[in-house]
């Protein structure tokens, strides 16, 4: 299990990277390497050239401005988790990142790497959609901002052009009266999710004003549904209301049937976990810690 030979390129800037991508067919960007190097060790991935993103300036900052937290593509997942664990309004975020692998992989695995990999069961693509985030990419014709919904397309396929790179993700900061919750069902701790579910809820004057519920592992990409308009302004989420909300998610599902779980089991898991995350997000939005 040793990688096949490859040229190794150390760019000095984002422009360098774009130029390489434009001129080198089959070049692969190396971020945290937690999926790519494993695939290369198995010789299932054999890029002719590997372009490291380590050391390229401007890719590993976390900063907050204009109402959003901007997370550089090369920020490692564990760093983001630690930072977000102190932000109550991003309740589902630190919790969700905590389900990615293990501390030993999150300390090397990057936020951008996981997003671009676009595994349909992965946590960060789901979270970015639930928090209505966007992505900042740079290509030969300049930079683009892409909404998360449009970025993720099919399993392991995104809107990123072959000569474009992801430089950052933007996470709009919810109102302080927000709560979020994340749950995942996997065979073992740290395994790829069979089903993951996240919910975000904002309240104002003790009334529901906004929210988004999403699930991963149940379609070609994570699916989300906003708080139904007829639930807005309500003073609480009853079990019936939660069911009403989550049932709007169900038609979006196209769950796979595999060794681990049947399609039906995945649907059941979405229902069970959705009830839990909605209830918990609601309690947290009110400032409680259930």
């Amino acid at each position: 299990m040793k990688p096949a030979p490859f040229d190794f390129i150390r760019p000095e800037s984002v422009d360098d990277i774009i130029s390489i991508l434009s001129h080198t067919a089959d070049a692969k960007l190396l971020a945290g390497g937690q999926s790519l190097i494993a695939m290369m060790n198995m010789r299932l991935a054999r890029p002719s050239a590997l372009v490291t993103l380590h050391g390229v300036p401007g890719l590993d900052a976390i900063e907050e401005k204009d109402g959003a937290v901007t997370v550089g593509a090369m920020v490692v997942q564990e760093r983001m988790r630690c930072l977000m664990s102190r932000r109550r309004e991003f309740g589902a975020l630190a919790e969700g990142i905590g389900y990615i692998g293990h501390p030993q992989t999150r300390s090397a695995g990057t936020v951008g790497g996981s997003i671009v990999h676009a595994d349909p069961s992965a946590e960060l693509p789901l979270l970015l959609q639930v928090y209505r985030g966007s992505l900042e990419t740079v290509g030969p014709s300049g930079s683009r901002h892409i909404a998360a919904e449009e970025f993720f397309q099919f399993p392991f396929t995104t809107a990123l052009a072959p000569d474009e790179i992801l430089v950052a993700t933007h996470w709009p900061v919810p109102t302080i009266s927000s709560g979020g919750s994340f749950r995942e069902f996997a065979r073992r701790r740290g395994d790829f999710a069979i089903v993951a579910v996240a919910c975000h809820i904002s309240i104002e004057d003790r009334r529901l004003i906004d929210g988004r519920l999403g699930a991963a592992g149940v379609a070609g990409k994570a699916v989300t549904v906003d708080l139904p308009p007829d639930l807005r302004g309500r003073p609480l989420i009853t079990e019936e209301a939660a069911t009403y909300w989550l049932e709007m998610l169900m038609p979006l599902l196209d769950p796979p049937d595999d060794l681990e779980a049947s399609s039906d089991l995945r649907r059941t898991l979405v229902r069970t976990l959705s009830r839990e995350v909605i209830a918990e997000a609601w309690v947290r939005a009110q400032g409680g810690t259930p």
Binding site: L30, Q34, I37, T52, Q104, T105, A108
Partner: peptide
């Protein structure tokens, strides 16, 4: 920070 050394390239350690 703890990381897997089998998923890192020596050339990329900097």
């Amino acid at each position: 920070a703890p990381v897997r050394s089998c998923l890192k390239l020596a050339i990329d350690v900097g």
